[in-house]
Simulated scan of single mutants.
Amino acid sequence: MRTGILGGTFNPVHNGHVKLAEAYISALHLDRLLIIPANIPPHKSDSGLVGASHRLAMCRLTFADDPLCEVSDIELKREGKSRTVDTLEQLVLLYPRDRFFLIMGSDMFCSFTSWYYWQRILQLAVLCAGARKASSTDDEMEEQRRKLEALGACCELVEFEPLPISSTLVREKIFKGESLDGLVAPTVAEYIREHGLYR
């Protein structure tokens, strides 16, 4: 089975994440995409991060109707920082016959060799990153792909145009009391309102 891995803080999950998921499922011909909220991401401060149970619930609401997307709490069950290599090691034990496709942003792809135990990650998953169409970063990403493949990596660059939405933008809209129409799933907007998140 071809299994994609899309991790992040999802603070909160938004429609840009949905479009990203759809693009990778299509481009990589995935049989399943695991949506994995991080406990404490190693590269970010946890300041302003709402509780894990809220982020998990919002992800489940967002992807509830997509049969190819499965929200996993694998990282939320582990204490401490969420390390990708640890997650992959667990997934390999859970799904020994799967081929894993690790999805990341272009910035993370270009700095991949600074990741914790990155050499082991190369052995466990195909590295997948999105490139904006006609972007100035295309050359940089192609060069990084060549470097990583020379180190034994398998890489896939997926071309798509992301929605101009970020979790920061969503949080700012909430703080200002503005509408979330078109930014998050209606069920997520209602969940945020009911629980008084990001105010």
Rank of each mutant, 00 (worst) to 15 (best):
D31Q: 03
L6G: 12
S53W: 06
D73V: 09
K44Q: 10
R60I: 00
A129P: 08
I36T: 10
E75F: 11
V50W: 02
F109A: 02
Q90W: 00
N11H: 11
H54F: 14
L56I: 03
G51N: 02
P12A: 05
A27C: 04
N11M: 11
S135N: 14
Y117A: 14
A27H: 02
P41D: 12
R83S: 03
E22A: 12
V92E: 07
H14A: 07
V92S: 09
P96Y: 10
V18G: 01
S53Y: 03
H29G: 06
L88A: 12
S135I: 14
L102R: 04
H54L: 14
D73L: 06
T84A: 06
E75Q: 10
Q119R: 14
S82C: 09
G16E: 08
F101R: 02
M104D: 09
D139H: 13
P12K: 06
V13M: 07
I74A: 13
D138F: 11
T9H: 12
I36Q: 08
M108H: 02
L122N: 08
Y117P: 01
K133T: 14
T84V: 05
L33G: 01
L30A: 05
L91D: 05
L33A: 03
W115E: 08
L61H: 02
E22L: 04
G8L: 10
S106M: 11
Y116H: 15
S26L: 11
L122K: 06
E22M: 04
F101E: 03
R83C: 01
D73P: 04
L6V: 13
M108S: 14
V71P: 03
N39F: 11
C110P: 04
L102F: 15
C110T: 14
R83F: 15
L102C: 04
Y116P: 03
R97N: 07
W115M: 10
L94Y: 00
R120C: 03
S106H: 05
G8H: 10
S106T: 13
Q119E: 13
S26N: 13
R55E: 08
P42D: 07
E140G: 15
A129V: 07
I74P: 06
Y117W: 09
Q119D: 12
E22P: 00
L127D: 00
K44Y: 01
F10Q: 05
H29A: 10
V13T: 08
I5N: 12
V13L: 04
L34D: 00
Y116I: 06
R78L: 04
L61R: 05
C110A: 13
I121R: 15
T87E: 11
V85N: 11
V71D: 05
Y116K: 12
P37T: 07
L88C: 12
P42R: 10
L124Y: 01
A27V: 03
F10S: 08
H17F: 13
R132V: 09
F63G: 04
D86S: 07
L93D: 06
